[in-house]
């Protein structure tokens, strides 16, 4: 076990180092960065802020990890967030009790995911195309639900999920941590983890081995939709309203980036949900740092783009056997001399 955790730590080294570097830069830009204080029974501070604001993307990344591990991608999560937020806000305004609102919003997310899963598993659409449909249509559905306006609400029970806290810890952090724990446990304590990796690496061979890959894909995409709905509820609760146009906008890309930073290949296969969550934290630490340092937020987008480029290049380079090639090249040059 000790040997295993050591190996895991070595594997996570690049991500942990980059997080440390970003946090250190944040500290240079804003010396009060590591301060945490308790106020009105709730923890405050930039670090808490990073986790709190990062929670929706962490939750998205959990679902996205399983999708990407199955050699797919889900572009619709941002739109699904908007749908679930719009539904939650509209139902709350209409006077439904909070538990019903939440179940309805989560159920809608499951249905959205199921739709994606059916397109991918049974109609054999390429995941990027299949989920693009809902990415576009979802915002339209959300606008239909809110009838084009920003729906605001003042129901403390729902707002609690966005801004409330328990034992001093903000609710979004608790929800994300709980989902993280449950997801990792389910995936590793059942056979699902192995089977997801298997269909992601070689779906044909997996089917030959008797795996029910279609049903598995349905479950994976439904779970991803569920996660998106959960993130959508948190964001709606945080701003006490639903903005069908902007809720979750571009967050699908953050979620994919988090998974990729976490080391899960876009070609499917081996995955780590924990590392994806770490990836999401790295992204949020970057966002927060740029805000704190007083740079205009436009820099944030450019910096993110640079990080994506570097990571994707490194990934394609090593999947092409780049390091081995360089090594061999270096050796043969050395030999000639």
């Amino acid at each position: 076990m000790n040997r295993l955790s050591k190996a895991a730590l070595t594997k996570a080294a690049p991500q942990l180092l980059s997080l440390a570097l970003i946090l250190f830069l944040n500290y240079l830009a804003f010396p009060g960065f590591f301060e945490i204080r308790l106020q009105d029974g709730r923890l405050f501070g930039s670090l808490i802020d990073v986790l709190n604001r990062g929670a929706p993307v962490i939750i998205l990344a959990i679902g996205m990890t399983t999708v990407i591990a199955s050699r797919g991608v889900d572009l619709s999560v941002g739109a699904v967030m908007a749908v679930s937020g719009a539904l939650a806000a509209t139902m709350t305004v209409a006077g439904y009790p909070v538990p019903v609102v939440i179940l309805a919003a989560l159920g809608t997310g499951l249905l959205c995911g199921l739709w994606n899963g059916i397109l991918v598993a049974y109609f054999d659409l390429q995941p990027i195309v299949a989920t693009l449909i809902l990415m576009v249509a979802g915002r339209g559905i959300a606008q239909l639900i809110t009838e084009g306006s920003i729906v605001t609400f003042n129901e403390p029970g729902l707002i609690f999920f966005g801004t409330g806290s328990f034992a001093g810890i903000p609710m979004p952090i608790l929800i994300a941590a709980f989902l993280l724990f449950v997801a990792i446990t389910v995936v590793r304590r059942t056979a699902l983890g192995l089977l997801i990796e298997s269909i992601g690496i070689n779906r044909s061979a997996s089917s030959y081995a008797g795996l029910n890959s279609k049903l598995l894909l349905l479950v994976i995409y439904s779970f991803c939709g569920f996660c998106a709905a959960l993130a959508g509820i948190i964001i709606a609760a945080d701003i006490r309203g639903a903005d069908a146009n902007n809720a979750g906008l571009w967050l699908e890309l953050d979620a994919i980036l988090a998974v990729v930073i976490g080391g899960t290949s876009l070609f499917g296969g081996r995955f780590s949900i924990l590392m994806s969550a770490l990836g999401a934290i790295i992204i949020q630490a970057m966002n927060t740092g740029i805000l704190l340092s007083g740079f205009p937020p436009e820099y944030n987008l450019i910096l993110k783009a640079l990080v994506i480029i570097v990571i994707l290049l490194a990934q394609s380079f090593s999947s092409l056997g780049g390091w081995a090639f360089l090594k061999a090249e270096f050796r043969s040059k050395g030999a000639k001399r």
């Binding site: 192995l194 089977l195 990796e197 298997s198 690496i201 997996s206 030959y208 081995a209």
Partner: peptide
């Protein structure tokens, strides 16, 4: 293309059909 799951270990490949 239809047999091995290349990136999985020998252990996982052997267990796969029974697990399924």
């Amino acid at each position: 293309s239809d047999g091995i799951i290349g990136d999985l270990s020998v252990r996982e490949n052997i267990s796969l059909a029974l697990q399924a």
